[in-house]
Nucleic acid binder design. Structure first.
Ligand code: MN
Ligand code: MN
Length: 549
DNA sequence: CGGTGTCCAG
DNA sequence: TTCACACCGTCAC
DNA sequence: GACGGTGTGTCTCTGGACACCGGA
């Protein structure tokens, strides 16, 4: 595998800064623009040191523990960064973070009174209880530095990636060939953000998410109420993605209120949005409070405005149970179609180390079949291969950086609308396409390892793809792909554990269920789909063979 | 001293 | 740190 | 059977260094 050039990390950092400067400079504040200008004016050593430190946990670093061969003059680099405001030595550092700079033996030397048998965490706690922060600082007298400007880097990163979960390691993995990306064309005007207000709101929503997480960790009702009052004000955001993110946070908090039996507080938050999870919780709460009419009317509204299969399922099932219990007749409810999935009962020896799915797969192999543990990798994977060029079609604005696993509109209705003709053609041609197998396989070979939202290369053997293409009939693929396309976001999960190929012909999807496990909702939906489309699928119900001693 | 987890480089 | 999945305990019917 | 809570792998990968911990 090819080595990266010395200082590769600085190249990546600068690439990102320049890219953002080129595409988004009109969105940047004076401070953010100056940040880049000042950084570029630093010496190469200083730039390298800064990027190195910012890539590490920190937040503080002992100067005597900083070792980088490629940085010639460490002290000069530190001075430069300090002068330009990229680094400082904090006067009032966090004591715990300071203690973390010492190993446990060093801690015990510095604070000899401690009982050596304690765990590290207990030692730290007891030092903090015993000494004031300034005493700890003076006592250790370490020369420490802290890189500054993380917030600015965050802005640049968000503008570049369009999210905050990707980071500089993307560059490395790509350049090492470990996780390369499709070479789609980005039109030069493509931008994820157009508006500073949206950018700021997005940054705020990431912070809100983080503080929500902390608040939930605390497990304290007062904190929760305080958080609600201070941070969850009704806000109107134009950006739908942002709105959804905000509502998700509200719903998480509301769910926590339910755990405290504060249904009224929960409802107040749930009421403000119409996300599926919110509607579902509202229906449950009203039912629990014996407000049957309210609960049923939520279900009815949910049913008639259902955006996904799962909303339809839930509203129907929940209302059905309610009506049965309270003797209501609901005109809007469709006839019940009882589930009738074929079940195969088998008995095998337990082996904790392997897991029930692999054991069942082995069982099928012992019957002379071939069997793979694929879950959601096979069908979405072949879909991703067959539709590859459509997924990565350059449509204006959907590709705005080189590290995307799919177009920006992949999970919005826009995706289908803007490509409807091509998608329809591809689906139609599937039935007669002499080339279907070849085009999937040739994409498998030519796109190998390239990141695609639907293709999980690690779980998609070439051999498996070949066999699946041979054994699964065209019209089955047609229906499977149509079903995926009907809800790309939700229908890429819930597929059965195994795909089984009997010795000579045919195939079978098999969902393995150990003792005490049952079909999940998403799995049920797939099984309904299988049964209406005559796609062979069963549930393998496993029980453990009694071991004789 | 071996097992485990975390950090970090590439 | 999120998501998808399995597993476990409880409760009511 | 319904429901809620929890645990696990895995998130894009792999290996090395190191610290910590608990038991011999
Ligand atoms: Mn499974
Ligand atoms: Mn299963």
């Amino acid at each position: 595998m090819e080595d990266l050039p010395t200082g590769y990390y600085l190249d990546n950092f600068k690439y990102l800064l320049d890219f953002v400067d080129e595409h988004y400079s009109n969105l940047l504040t004076k401070e953010e623009l100056n940040y880049r200008r000042d950084f570029l004016s630093c010496s190469r050593d200083a730039q390298r040191l800064y990027v190195r430190l910012c890539g590490r946990r920190g937040p503080y670093f002992r100067v005597d523990k900083i070792f980088y061969d490629e940085i010639a003059d460490l002290d000069a680099a530190i001075d430069t960064l300090r002068d330009k405001g990229f680094l400082w030595s904090p006067k009032d550092p966090d004591a715990l973070a300071l203690l973390s700079l010492l190993t446990k033996p060093d801690l015990l030397i510095a604070f000899p009174v401690m009982n050596k048998k304690l765990l590290r965490g207990d030692i730290e706690a007891s030092i903090l209880a015993q000494y004031s922060v300034s005493e700890v600082v003076n006592h250790l007298s370490l020369h420490i530095v802290e890189p500054l400007g993380h917030e600015v880097i965050t802005v640049y990163r968000l503008l570049f990636f369009g999210n905050l979960h990707q980071d500089f390691s993307e560059f490395v993995l790509r350049d090492l060939g470990l996780s390369p990306f499709e070479n789609y064309t980005m039109d030069s005007s493509a931008r994820y953000f157009d508006d500073r207000a949206i950018l700021d709101a997005t940054l705020a929503s990431y912070e809100l998410e983080a503080s929500c997480y902390e608040v939930l960790e605390e497990k304290n009702l007062e904190t929760l109420i305080e958080f609600t009052d201070n941070c969850l004000h009704l806000q109107s955001v134009e950006e739908p993605r942002l709105q959804a993110r905000f509502e998700k946070i509200c719903n998480r908090v509301a769910r926590e209120y339910e755990r405290y039996k504060k249904d009224d507080l929960a409802l107040k938050l749930y009421n403000r949005n119409d996300q599926a999870s919110s509607l579902e919780r509202q229906a449950r709460i009203y039912a629990k409070q014996n407000k049957i009419d309210e609960s049923v009317s939520i279900c009815e509204a949910m049913y008639s405005a259902a955006r996904t299969e799962s909303e339809k399922e839930f509203s129907q099932n929940f209302a059905r149970r309610l009506s049965k219990k309270h003797g209501l007749t609901l005109t809007w409810m469709p006839e019940i179609v009882p589930d009738d999935f074929s079940v195969l009962e088998i008995e095998i020896n337990n082996d904790e180390s392997l897991g029930v799915e692999l054991l069942t797969s082995t069982w099928f192999q012992k019957q002379g079949s071939q069997s793979w543990y694929v879950e959601n990798s096979l069908i979405p994977g072949i879909f991703g291969l067959y539709f590859w060029d459509i997924i990565f079609l350059s449509i204006k604005g959907v590709f705005f950086n080189p590290f995307q696993r799919g177009p920006a509109d992949l999970f919005t209705p826009e995706f289908l609308h803007l490509r409807s003709v091509l998608i329809q053609q591809r689906l139609d041609s599937l039935r007669v396409d002499e080339n279907f197998q070849n085009s999937v396989l040739s994409n498998y070979d030519s796109k190998m390892k390239l990141a695609n939202y639907f293709v999980n290369w690690n779980w998609l053997d070439r051999e498996l793809v070949i066999l699946a293409l041979e054994r699964i009939p065209r019209n089955h693929f047609h229906e499977l792909f149509k079903h995926l396309l009907s809800d790309l976001r939700h229908n890429c999960s819930g597929l059965p554990d195994l795909v089984v190929f009997p010795k000579t012909e045919g195939y079978l999807f098999s969902e393995v269920k150990g003792p005490g496990d049952k079909l999940q909702d998403s799995q049920k939906r797939w099984f309904k789909f299988f049964s209406t489309n005559n796609i062979p699928a069963n549930i393998v119900s496993v029980s453990w063979r009694k071991v004789q001693y």
